[in-house]
């Protein structure tokens, strides 16, 4: 696997036990993603988008085949090594934001930096930078329940981006947002992708998201149905 891909899968298969048998969610996926891509896994529910995202995000392991993320073979990582990969190199954005409700906006964004052991002064600067990217510097002391859905998702983006990860994985990031907030969020992500060269990988079936993607990988029944690069 010598190439410039930061994410590469080869004959990736994932099976889940189901009753007495098995259900195959991914059937021999071959993919390669380079640095700075803004790519989406597109497909209907049950097509295998989230399963593929989980494996690339080192939250799950393949049943067969290879998955290499930033030179790490996901299938052979220990739980600790997988946690370290996520901590240092990956950022996650979820459909339901998943912010820590009792902590302020500032503390939510600061949390990944605490895990990485950054000193307080550096942490403060990085958190404020991240909040500036998403336009939330005036909300630092507020807590998630006091924010709108769009603001919550922007906090989630700031939290994913604060450590400047190589890859951001976003699972249906606009599913709970209205059209205006969805576009706002997506424009923010496009800007960060362009400014920081961070690779964004989405799982989505939302047309609004799809319209912003530079590459669309269509999944159907656990297989790549179409891989389409959007020309500017």
């Amino acid at each position: 696997m010598e190439n410039n891909f930061i994410i590469q899968t080869e004959k990736l298969t994932k099976r889940f036990p189901m009753g007495k048998g098995e259900f195959t969610a991914l059937k021999g996926i071959d993919l390669g993603l380079g640095t700075g891509e803004f790519t989406g896994l597109v497909g209907p529910s049950g097509s295998g988008k989230t399963t593929l995202l989980n494996i690339i995000g080192s939250l799950d392991t393949p049943s067969e085949g290879k998955v290499i993320v930033l030179d790490h073979s996901i299938g052979s990582l220990t739980a600790k090594e997988a946690a370290r990969l996520r901590k240092e190199q990956l950022g996650f954005i979820f459909q339901s934001y998943n912010l820590l409700a009792v902590h302020t906006v500032y503390e939510n964004v600061e949390f990944p930096l605490l895990l990485l052991g950054f000193p307080a002064g550096e942490r403060r600067k990085m958190v404020m930078d991240a909040l500036e990217w998403v336009g939330l510097t005036d909300k630092v002391k507020q807590k998630p329940p006091q924010l709108s859905g769009g603001e919550c998702q922007r906090v989630a983006i700031a939290r994913a981006m604060v450590k400047k990860p190589s890859i951001v994985i976003a699972d249906e990031p606009t599913a709970n947002l209205d059209a205006a907030n969805s576009h706002n969020i997506l424009q923010t992500m496009v800007r960060l992708n362009s400014e920081l060269k961070t690779t964004f990988l989405f799982a989505t079936h939302d047309e609004k998201v799809i319209s912003y993607l530079k590459r669309k990988i269509y999944l159907l029944d656990g297989k790549v149905d179409k891989d389409e690069i959007v020309s500017n």
Binding site: G57, L59, A79, K80, A83, R84, L85, R86, K87, E88, L90, F92, F94, N98, L99, L100, F111, P112, L115, R159
Partner: peptide, 15 residues
């Protein structure tokens, strides 16, 4: 579980 899940996803190890 939500909080624990997000902490694990962000990279905190189980231990």
């Amino acid at each position: 579980y939500g909080e624990i899940g997000i902490r694990l996803a962000i990279g905190e190890d189980k231990g």
